[in-house]
């Protein structure tokens, strides 16, 4: 199921945060939303999943226009902040969110075990989340997002604040999810992570300055570093 954005605009008060963004994310790809902090990555993700209504423009998942409640079953979302219940254990959080989907109880219990292993939290499953470290919270949040095996996974800065070893493991998991057919939209401000993705969507001040395959994006640069494309954008914006 492709995701098509067409002329999507969004402002908060007087400040325009998403400025006429149009692009299509093909099913089964990993699409990276890349941009400096404050460029509108989180807002764009919230628009796509229907948490925010756009001021104008449309967002379609295949033939279905968002927002749509039936789509929500097939959608996984990992917010930028942790969005966990601190007074519940890791297992309690998974059990609660899992219970909101139409999953049979026995399947759910097995699946909870599986995702806890994936994010290496099996040993901490009974611990209350308020006693978790930042990295553990991130991993639990990821576990919740993939728990119901969504077809489309939205991840807002999933690797921020995670050490390099774990970061590599998490990216390996994204690759294996992709291999199972999941479409992944992942935002990051770490430019190096773009090489893991199929497509890169470069956001700068709410504008989509580039959208292409990662290889072609890298070809456009002289040094092979994606930052260059942002420097160019900042210069052209500085000119009147």
């Amino acid at each position: 199921m492709d995701i098509q954005l067409s002329h999507v605009k969004k402002s908060f008060g007087d400040t325009s945060v998403i400025k006429d963004v149009s692009f299509t994310i093909a099913a089964g790809e990993i699409c990276c939303l890349l941009g400096p902090s404050g460029s509108g990555k989180t807002t764009l993700i919230r628009l796509m999943i229907g948490a925010l209504p756009p001021d104008s423009g449309t967002i379609r998942f295949g033939d279905i226009e968002m927002p749509n409640r039936a789509i929500l079953k097939r959608l996984g979302f990992m917010p930028q902040n942790d969005a966990l219940y601190e007074d519940l254990s890791a297992h309690g959080n998974l059990k609660f969110f899992g219970g909101l989907y139409p999953i049979p109880k026995r399947t759910l219990d097995a699946r909870i075990k599986e995702v806890l292993e994936m994010v290496e939290l099996t040993g901490h499953s009974q611990k209350l989340v308020k006693n978790f470290s930042g990295g553990m919270k991130k991993r639990l949040s990821l576990a919740i997002a993939i728990l119901h095996k969504p077809d489309i996974l939205f991840l807002d800065e999933p690797t921020a604040g995670i050490d390099p070893v774990l970061r590599r493991k998490i990216w390996a998991q994204f690759q294996s999810l992709k291999a199972q057919g999941t479409t992944i939209i992942v935002s990051t401000h770490v430019m190096d992570e773009v090489v893991e993705c199929d497509k890169g969507a470069l956001l700068y001040n709410g504008r989509l300055i580039e959208y292409d395959t990662v290889n072609r994006l890298l070809d456009k640069t002289a040094s092979g570093r994606i930052e260059e494309l942002f420097f160019a954008a900042s210069e052209s914006e500085a000119r009147p």
Binding site: F77, L84, Y101, P102
Partner: peptide, 13 residues
């Protein structure tokens, strides 16, 4: 404020 409500609303509830 923690964002759990937004996450909750992104499930089919």
């Amino acid at each position: 404020s923690r964002g759990t409500l937004e996450r909750l609303m992104m499930t089919p509830i």
